[in-house]
Design a protein around this nucleic acid. Sequence first.
DNA 1: AGAAAATAGTGCGCTTTCGTACAGAATCAT
DNA 2: ATGATTCTGTACGAAAGCGCACTATTTTCT
Lengths: 236, 236
Amino acid sequence: MVGNNNSVSRGNSILDLLPEIERREIFSLGKVICVAAEETIYHFGDPITHLYFPLNSAFSATSLMEDGSSAEVSLTGHEGVIGFFAAFNEQQSARYWISVLTSGEAVKVELANIRHLFAESKKLQSALLASSRNLMCQISQRAVCNGSHSLAERFCFWLLLVHDRAKTDEIVLTHEVIARKLGARRAGITNIAGMLQIAKVIAYNRGTIRIINRWGLEKESCECYAAVQNALAAKE
Amino acid sequence: MVGNNNSVSRGNSILDLLPEIERREIFSLGKVICVAAEETIYHFGDPITHLYFPLNSAFSATSLMEDGSSAEVSLTGHEGVIGFFAAFNEQQSARYWISVLTSGEAVKVELANIRHLFAESKKLQSALLASSRNLMCQISQRAVCNGSHSLAERFCFWLLLVHDRAKTDEIVLTHEVIARKLGARRAGITNIAGMLQIAKVIAYNRGTIRIINRWGLEKESCECYAAVQNALAAKE
DNA sequence: AGAAAATAGTGCGCTTTCGTACAGAATCAT
DNA sequence: ATGATTCTGTACGAAAGCGCACTATTTTCT
């Protein structure tokens, strides 16, 4: 493999689509950081100053509602980037609360430093566009899912999304956190997780979920996961 | 007003942001058509060959599910365009069923004819980008809404979206159609519509809804409508 | 004019999910 | 160690919304 040293090509799909020289430039202008679960990246309304290209971390965009409830809008991992719209448009602000769902690494780059690249690089533009199309597809499907499918199906759909992005079978997540992302009760999640554990699809223990039977999870999920995957595949 | 003849500037926000000359070019390359309610623009998977810039019509992107149920993903009117992603990327296909929700006029342009404009015109690019950001915001909020809010709130939110795009107080819509868009039962819609009619917020009669008290509708809606409106306003 | 279709009103039992609450177990802090 | 906190299990009544079915109008078709 060419140029596969450990400062490049660690797994973000957008960066991986770039020519070696551009990818190197982004890595040198930014830096690889570790992000910790629950860490806030942007509060609602914050100006977007940095982009984050997740490697094995997953970022959550969550709506915090007036009554204190919350619901996740989207999940971004190695297939996407945080801050897409700000890349092309000055002075964008965050529309939702952006936080880290599962810890890991990401490439953090100050927008001002790489804005010239967005204007110049066709490859980067089209990679960003593809990823935003993809994100829109995820959000669309979640809109459908939230409106039409059972909590158990939604749970499985969501867990599959997380699993893909965390790149590990051991995912650090409490029922409480999951509930807040799915806009459901903690007790409701406990019930469903319990059933899935009995079915030997997952196992969990005080804040850690282990995916035992990925195929089973896909079977218990609604068609939404497949729809999102199809869109991802079609993109390439 | 300059150039305000009746072949241009009839109300699509994207077109209206363009320099006169470019807007004229789009109008001359395409044509203003009338679209009728229920008309299919694209089936799932169809290649996107034309763009539609709605004027006073509204287009619906709807997910048709395996079990025969359906749910609307997004609503596009004068503030947006149908076919955004295909503008920048060859050979895109429709991810959802695109149909006309409320009849009216739209500017229809063959993609191949105007692709050069997308590459050249910075104004057009940024207008399209802004509208896609806006659309993503609508879809995001609908994801939240579908997951967290009551059918009555969702109904009001949705009707406000339709009202803005149809640009008239008399909207041709049966309970059945609304139910399919909201992913609910027809009878459920009848109940809610009945209550809103008693409250003199709307009136309806065999397939036509009249908005009587717009303010009342906003009050009965959840915070989702305001969130979408804020995003629209922030865009400018 | 008469039949057929479309639209809306209503009722009932059922399922899912919620809100809330309490308790046991594991982990953490000091 | 031990007290506090976090995480999970469980229960129960209430509410929203569903599936289904039947009816009454109004409109359309022939």
